[in-house]
Computed example of a mutant assay.
Amino acid sequence: MPILLTRRTLLTLVGASGLALGTSVAAQDRGLRLAFIPQENPEKLLGDIEAVTGWLAEELGVPVEGFVTIDHAAAVEALRNGDADISFMGALPFVLAEAEIGAVPLLSEVYRGAPSYTGRIFIRRDSGIQTLADLRDRDIAFADPISESGYLYPLTEFVQAGLIQSPGEAEAFFGRIFFAGGYQQAMQAMAEGLVDAAGASQYADLLLTPDQQAQVTWIAESEAIPSHLVIARPGLDSDLQARFVDAMMKLNEPENRDKLQYLYGPDGYVKADPADHDGVRDMARRYGLLE
């Protein structure tokens, strides 16, 4: 079985609720509740969330509360049961949430001028690893089992290289597989020598220190993936949803762009087009994640 590297740490931070860090969403009866996924260190995200929810509350004129979930699956569950109204989420979790609970895509992130990015397999430069085949019987950390750039797309590079036939055969190829709980956690595990490689977003090395960045490289890159989204639970008040989208689009304006650093650091946002995720839906069906 793959191992959750950070599960004990996260559960300590989460507390008894099992859903969120630092706040109780159940106590919030009015306003907007936002679920954030732990792509970065969850403790750092708490400060970021406070900054962005404060700004959104001023823009919307309603209370806005944010919390960090354990992973993508917990964010979907929070949307399902009403503990969250809106969530920041990857493309694969979105298409699964769309199929399971009717989640609605609102916004797509823009990076380097495009609403897409890739997944990569990262290694340390001094590891002696040069090809994907060199990772046979070695340990690898992925971000999340339902992450596109942090699992499925990087793993597909091994399929295309003829090293495995499907994700189900991955455990027989690698020594051990770990799900670290986020990009930064997977990259740190690799950079610190706890594992031999990491599967994560093409930008995940930017979450390392400058010294660590100089010590890592990548050996495989996936096809383009639709960027992360901001999605809403079905049934969210349409007026509040529209005002939220308008407020988020203001982050593209020069006077507000500094706030993007508190939202995982994209270049900006565009309104989401569900058709952009057809390729992700196809891959999810191919691997038995969607009917």
Score class of each variant (00 low, 15 high):
Ala161Asp: 07
Arg138Ala: 06
Asp139His: 09
Tyr153Phe: 14
Glu148Ile: 02
Glu171Val: 06
Pro145Ala: 13
Ala186Pro: 12
Tyr183Glu: 12
Pro145Ser: 14
Gly182Gln: 02
Leu155Gln: 07
Gln184Gly: 10
Ile164Gln: 03
Ser147Glu: 02
Glu169Gly: 08
Leu152Lys: 00
Val195Met: 03
Gly193Arg: 01
Phe174Leu: 12
Gly193Trp: 05
Phe173Arg: 00
Leu194Asp: 11
Ser147Asp: 03
Leu194Ala: 14
Gln188Trp: 03
Ser149Glu: 02
Gln188His: 09
Gly193Met: 00
Phe178Leu: 10
Leu194Gln: 12
Thr156Phe: 05
Gly193Tyr: 03
Tyr151Thr: 01
Tyr153Glu: 12
Glu157Asn: 13
Pro167Gln: 02
Tyr151His: 13
Ile164Phe: 11
Gly182Ile: 01
Ser147Arg: 05
Leu155Ile: 01
Pro145Asn: 09
Pro154Gln: 00
Ala191His: 08
Ala141Met: 08
Glu169Pro: 08
Phe174Thr: 07
Ala172Val: 00
Gln188Tyr: 07
Ala180Leu: 06
Phe158Cys: 02
Glu192Phe: 15
Ala170Gly: 05
Phe179Pro: 07
Gly162Thr: 05
Gly175Ile: 09
Tyr151Cys: 15
Thr156Ser: 08
Val195Phe: 14
Pro167His: 01
Tyr183Asn: 14
Arg176Asp: 15
Tyr151Pro: 14
Gly168Asn: 05
Ala141Pro: 12
Gln160Met: 14
Ala172Lys: 04
